[in-house]
Design a protein around this nucleic acid. Sequence first.
DNA 1: GTCTATAAGAAGATAGAC
DNA 2: GTCTATCTTCTTATAGAC
Lengths: 188, 188
Amino acid sequence: MTRKGQISRDRIVEAANRLVYTKGYNQTSFADVSTEVGITKGNLHYHFKSKDELLEAIINYRLAIISDHLDHWNEKISEPKEKLKRFVKMLLNEERDIMRYGCPMGSLNVELGKFQQPLQARAKEMFDLYQGWLEKIFKQIDKKYSKSRSNHLLAMAQGAALMSYVYSDKKILKDESNSIEEWIDSLN
Amino acid sequence: MTRKGQISRDRIVEAANRLVYTKGYNQTSFADVSTEVGITKGNLHYHFKSKDELLEAIINYRLAIISDHLDHWNEKISEPKEKLKRFVKMLLNEERDIMRYGCPMGSLNVELGKFQQPLQARAKEMFDLYQGWLEKIFKQIDKKYSKSRSNHLLAMAQGAALMSYVYSDKKILKDESNSIEEWIDSLN
DNA sequence: GTCTATAAGAAGATAGAC
DNA sequence: GTCTATCTTCTTATAGAC
């Protein structure tokens, strides 16, 4: 694949990713994406034979971003509980988007699970990345509860994102973030 | 409206409600609903002029069911913490559906929020019912934290439902339910 | 690679007979 | 009320010129 083609493909995936997040997968058409990128539908179909193929590219794109974040946090933060808090801090960093569009990972999984199980399995890998990373950290605190604690942290973060999204309320996000941090502090 | 018409309309709403839950609103077409009920699309349009109107009827149907549940719990249970636990128990009672299709209230709100804000506002009323009921109960325990605690309980329940749905894992639902119950016991 | 043109189907919605 | 028939629009996808 030529350099020009690669650049074009990346631009498509980035635009489509944003549209899928803000409008939902079903509400995002090829027409929407091609208009956003500034190409024609025919050209879009040259790069992605089907909508499923485009969605898979979006999921891969998101997985790569998550992996980069986790690698970065591993390098920058050594203290286990500080790593956990860095994860929680995402909620407040992405406050604006979460309140408007929810958690990109959670909402995509919810949407796909209803009708597109094969790709929901791929979307689930976003959770897997965080879950595996968190479990490794919780193991450093206590080997016994690492799995259930990582699931619990993910559940609380998802609950916080969903509630603040439903109510468009940043106070909920703030309160729930604090609650999660207190829980982290209480661990031993 | 005649008795026969009323019965037919109820049957439509019940079938459509189930389809919207299991397949999602966007994936549920008039053809799906009419086939399920055993009538034609034209007839379905006689009862509901638009898809939005059908969805609104579904939301009203769900709101009525929730109201009935809350009234029933108010009558049957007097102890505040027992009421809270009855709410949490829903997660395990609906285990099978939650693992397959998620929380009906949460997933509908997530889906509608992405493109159908007017009806998401109606769907949010399902949360409002539970939130108001919970807040009243939390006030009996401590007036100061009733609002944030009711949001916290809803957030944890939503997080539990979402995680067990994403992973199709009943252990997550069980663990999170226990965690919520422990939190309730710890309150004073 | 990018375009125009168009196919093929599904969806929401309407009109009118019974 | 329920049906058949039809309309319109949107969507995914393909064919072929440049």
